[in-house]
Amino acid sequence: MAFALEFFLRRISQGVLIVLAVAFVIFTLLRIAPGDPIRIILGPMATPSAMEETAERLGLRDPIPVQFLRYLGDIARGDFGNSFIRGKQGGTTGGSQDAAGAPPVERAAVIELIARALPYTLLLAACGFLLACLVSIPLGILAGVRNSGWPQKVALYLSSFFVSLPNVWVGIVLIYLLSARTGWLPAIGYQHIGYVVIPAIVVAVELAPVMIRSISVAVATNVQDPFYEIGQVRGLSARIMLFRHVLRNAAVPLLNSFGAQMIGMLLGGLFVVEYIFSFPGIGLLTINAVFQRDFPVIQTVAIFASTVLVFINIAVDFASTTIDRRLKF
């Protein structure tokens, strides 16, 4: 199908450009930020000459574009650099600043750190998202179909309430209630699947209000559309019209808000939640990296995150243009 081919050719080339631009922005930001990476690598006791030598060797004295190109070249070979801080043996529990004094060669490859943390993040994301769907899809649809009545009220109250709760606070309250006080569930770190429950609830509480709102608005808009009522006059039941047609049409704005808003929220939420719960995923890795000025880790995570966002958006746009053929791209 020519259309799909052109779509992907065009969007993927655009997407690669965007990721490159993001990478450059982040790369530059980190280079001009205060804090000399050499001192971080070598520790506070290093002599000026040793520092200068290391800087030369690592190419840190070249102009930023040159460094960036070299970095891209490394990435092309699959080398995302080594952590400034973390040793090869770095544990998965994270949070600990291990092997700060280890010689540079012994530092862990960033890509390995990420590969180790990614499954945890994915697990948490999947659980949180599923949980949010479980609540918001039925409620959102119910609230969207009718312009009044209890589902509408419940949806409004619930989403206004949930959205007012800062996730850091929800996290701590849940730790207090479900873990510290009662001991029902484990909370800090990760040892088995039980550790994912409370963090997932926090992620879901953050996502649900947005989802409820977008679903009910999208459904309500399409229920207003003449084809819904006319379909019933044509002899199709309201149920068929709702499930086969209204939801199909509502999927388009939903996919859009998913790509534009929810994925970003989910990522941000994961970062914070992992930090609160010392959950050994990408977020914790990154936040610790920031405090330790572990530049290679930060920039790799940022590039990864924006790549994921860009490509999810391409997928989302493809799905919506496939559903609604009127859309251009």
Partner: peptide
Amino acid sequence: DIQMSIPVIILAITILGM
């Protein structure tokens, strides 16, 4: 697009953390 593909929290911790 570029701006939106940098998650808020990442941007914030990068700039504010540094």
